[in-house]
Nucleic acid binder design. Structure first.
Lengths: 228, 228
DNA sequence: GCAAAAGTGTTCACTCTACACCCATGG
DNA sequence: CCATGGGTGTAGAGTGAACACTTTTGC
């Protein structure tokens, strides 16, 4: 069991593209850098991978340290390793993308620390390093993925109205959808089920629904393909 | 421009899952390891990333060094970094998948060196490290990808018969397709065009076709979605 | 009673699927 | 002339898209 590899090694980081949904538009969680380089610039949350630490675990750890988020949906996106992407030297970054429900979101409305903040996905500031590239990649992935996998539910509260769900799809896909067709298609899948609750407001209350993960898994394992 | 990061760092490698098509089934190119650990075992071609070397460049370099292949279709797959995946210590591997045309394939039928060999994708030997996991991931990705992106052409010669193309799709998707429907759908896309050539054989010659990359790009940029 | 959002069906066009026979060549 | 794979069309079912009005609630 030799201690091999006495070559110089690139440094290894993880970065997270965190998406949220505020009811109207898709949002991205950024942090303000407190260190050089790019001190004061906005950047994706992330940091160095420890020895003996799994990559996804590193992403979750950094996410919690820098934004307080835990237990979110997280999936590997792509690894960015162009020489020169970090002015300090060779740094390779494994990027993840995360989806956060608005109800378990400590950073939302966070004003005491100007360290983490949400930005509309279509109106982002300049970012440190190559983080804009990573972000664009993540957006494309999300747009592609939402069409054939039920990831959208990770951006809504546990129970939601069908109008909210439709607004989410419209925001991500960037185009309007027909209300009756949208609901008809959902009706065909039985993994979106009614709850007993209703949402309030100055108008007719909307029935709340939830995503039934077990029913979805049962269907999917039978070679079922979701498509919206 | 501090020389920061005096932490211990994981070692970084690239590994390539190389797919080929022999006219009947999907194949994977493996190499026999000449070093410990797993000496003599079959493994994915790959190796260490140099400092100052782009990740994809590293994958291409290793591919050429170990199999002689160059200029192939190559795309990043996923990064595997579980602690313990390499008995020598912490090694993180960025996996790529490659598609090679049978006509520019030096390794095919290679018998003098028992170093690289093709295996049917559904009948693989035990592999070193976690390479079986990587391979399974690559297969899933290929199956998913071929349905909405014209990657299949990267596995066929420059010009091919429609029967060959259909056989390829059937091999990857793992089910039979209707000949008339298959050809009807291709006819609707005008990026598969007739050439003047014919394939020989003891029977009626088949018209050769080719993939028109420019026409495809023109369509795709207009928001066109390929689906087979 | 009015403003605001919720909820609900039908028709038409198009796409997908199933299906069987004649054609061109080499031997 | 026969064996082998190449090449072609149609009908019926299913799916996707367009489209407008009634209901329920708070104020």
């Amino acid at each position: 069991m030799a201690h091999t590899y006495e070559y110089p090694r690139p440094a290894l980081t993880v970065d997270c593209v965190v998406f949220g949904f505020d009811g109207a538009g898709l949002q991205v969680l950024l942090i303000r850098r407190g260190l050089e380089p790019f001190l004061g610039a906005w950047a994706l949350p992330g940091g160095f991978v420890h020895m003996e630490e799994d990559l996804e675990a590193a992403a979750r750890r950094e996410l919690e340290e820098e934004t307080g988020l835990k237990g979110v949906f997280l999936e590997q996106l792509e690894t960015f390793g162009a020489p020169g992407r970090d002015p300090r030297g060779r740094v390779v970054s494994v990027a993840y993308f995360a989806l956060v429900r608005p109800d378990r979101n400590p950073a939302r409305g966070d004003t005491d620390a100007s360290e983490a903040a949400w930005f509309p996905a279509d109106k982002l500031p300049e970012l440190a390093f190559d983080h804009s590239v990573i972000l664009t990649t993540a957006l494309e992935r999300l747009r592609g993925k939402i069409r054939y996998q039920p990831v959208g539910f990770e951006l809504l509260p546990e129970s939601f109205t069908l109008t909210q769900l439709q607004a989410l799809y419209e925001a991500i896909l960037g185009r309007g959808l027909d209300k009756r067709n949208f609901r008809k298609k959902l009706g065909a899948f039985d993994f979106v089920v009614e709850t007993q609750g209703f949402a309030g407001g100055s108008h007719r209350p909307a029935r709340l629904h939830r995503f039934d993960h077990d029913k979805y898994e049962a269907l999917r394992s039978k070679g079922f393909l979701f498509e919206l």
